[in-house]
């Protein structure tokens, strides 16, 4: 119970802090736009955490063959997809206001597109297999495959391909550092925001799992 109160406090702090402190960059024409980073970046982090947890449960399922891991895997994947869409939408709005168009095929935009494709395929696979054990097995295998392919796109490609996000090598050579100024105020909102949304994800995942398990229990009676 206590951690729900803590979560409430952190979320309130993030929501207030995101609007009260000076915007995280002083250099661009319209620095106010950069406040979206407090929500865009945590969404992306939570997506990776959710899908990563999904892959962890897939491995657990394959080694122990227990349906309760399949349940957790699909809950993580569903919520991960919600966060992935939120990251894409907030990123699109951000991109329109800083780079001029909603979608630029920057390597990170490619990676989020790739993630949505992989998990779209994952849900298509789940709906195409009728036997529950077979479905759990095949989707666990595919989710490991897909997440590893996605890791390639999330952590490797944006660092070697020229792109618009911070951290990408610039065509002129060398890696330009972050364009966000990381002073204490920015960090004191951004880091709690990441933690808070990961907390929200775990809470939602536990609720989804509980509801599904309760539903199954009732059916059995």
């Amino acid at each position: 119970m206590i951690w729900k109160v803590v979560l409430l406090l952190i979320i309130s702090w993030v929501t207030v802090g995101a609007w009260v402190f000076p915007p995280p960059t002083p250099v661009i024409d319209n620095p106010e736009v950069f406040r979206i980073i407090y929500f865009h970046f945590p969404m992306a982090i939570t997506t990776v955490v959710a899908y990563g947890l999904g892959m962890f449960y897939s491995i657990k399922y394959l080694s122990e063959r227990n349906m309760k891991y399949d349940l957790r895997e699909v809950a993580s994947a569903r919520l991960g997809t919600i966060f992935c869409v939120l990251a894409a939408v907030s990123g699109s709005i951000f991109a329109k206001n800083t780079w001029g168009s909603y979608w630029n095929w920057d390597p990170r935009e490619t990676s989020i597109f790739m993630l949505l494709l992989v998990y779209g395929a994952y849900f298509a696979l789940r709906s195409a297999v009728s036997d529950p054990d077979q479905r759990a097995n095949l989707s666990a295998v595919y989710s490991i495959f897909g997440f590893v392919a996605a890791i390639f796109f999330i952590f490797i490609m944006p660092r070697i391909m020229p792109g618009l996000h911070p951290g990408a090598p610039k065509p002129t050579g060398g890696s330009e550092g972050s364009i966000i100024t990381f002073n204490l105020e920015t960090a004191s909102v951004l880091i709690p925001s990441c933690l808070a949304y990961i907390g929200v994800f775990i809470w939602m995942k536990n609720l989804t799992v509980d509801i599904t398990e309760l539903g199954k229990g009732n059916k059995g009676v």
Binding site: V118, G120, A149
Partner: peptide, 20 residues
């Protein structure tokens, strides 16, 4: 080979993995 609808699923499943 274990799924019920095979043709369409093959393209859907392989494309994300082939994309890189």
């Amino acid at each position: 080979s274990k799924a019920s609808v095979k043709g369409a699923l093959f393209a859907v499943l392989s494309f994300p993995l082939i994309l890189p």
